[in-house]
Simulated assay, not measured.
Amino acid sequence: MSLIIGIDPGSRLTGYGIIERDGSKLRFVDAGTIRTETTEIPERLKRIFAGVDRIVKFHGPTEAAVEQVFMAQNPDSALKLGQARGAAIAALVNLDLKVAEYTARQIKQSVVGYGAADKEQVQMMVMKLLDLSIRPQADAADALAAAICHAHASGSMSKLAVLNSLGGMARGRSRYSGRRR
């Protein structure tokens, strides 16, 4: 069983979502947004760092997933988003969490099955996958989607590692040549 935090970085609203993975079962734990409510960038970054730090210390996740920055039309917006993302990642690694990074397309593909899905589709699938009765706020839903994406990706990697370690011996084949021994 593992507890996964997903982060959807933003300079004004940073979404977070925490899920529990037990085998292939996912369970909702918490979600919300960190609101910076100030115009000064250094103060926003401080609030993002402190918010992520507080949430991680409270819930104690063992894994983290953060959405990667996409290239925005406005370079100033992209810079602010990158700084917000950096503050969140710094808070996570400061608490010794390993951070996995996924593109928005990877997250949407993992959760919705379509890499160009819109926010409403992501919200609806997050509700369905986590059996939620209330639609989470968009940034929180995106963060939950990042956590779900990581649960799927890391679960698949664990299965592959086990299969790879057993596969060659179980079939009597050499892993290197593909020929029977």
Rank of each mutant, 00 (worst) to 15 (best):
F58G: 13
H59L: 05
H59Y: 11
H59A: 10
E63M: 11
A65Y: 00
E67N: 07
Q68S: 08
Q68D: 08
Q73P: 03
P75H: 02
S77N: 11
S77A: 15
A78K: 05
K80E: 10
K80M: 11
A84N: 04
G86N: 04
G86I: 12
I89G: 02
A90G: 06
L92M: 15
L92R: 01
N94Y: 02
K98F: 05
A100Y: 02
E101A: 12
T103S: 14
Q106T: 06
I107Y: 01
K108G: 04
Q109D: 03
V111K: 02
G113M: 07
E120W: 00
Q121T: 03
M124W: 00
V126P: 05
M127S: 09
K128L: 13
K128M: 09
K128T: 14
K128G: 04
L130C: 12
D131W: 06
S133W: 12
R135I: 13
P136C: 13
P136T: 14
L144Q: 06
L144P: 07
A145G: 08
A146S: 08
A147E: 03
I148S: 01
A153T: 13
S154E: 14
S154V: 13
S156C: 09
M157S: 11
K159Q: 15
L160H: 00
V162R: 11
V162E: 14
L163F: 06
L163M: 12
L163C: 10
G168A: 13
M169A: 14
A170C: 10
R171S: 14
S174P: 01
S174M: 08
Y176P: 01
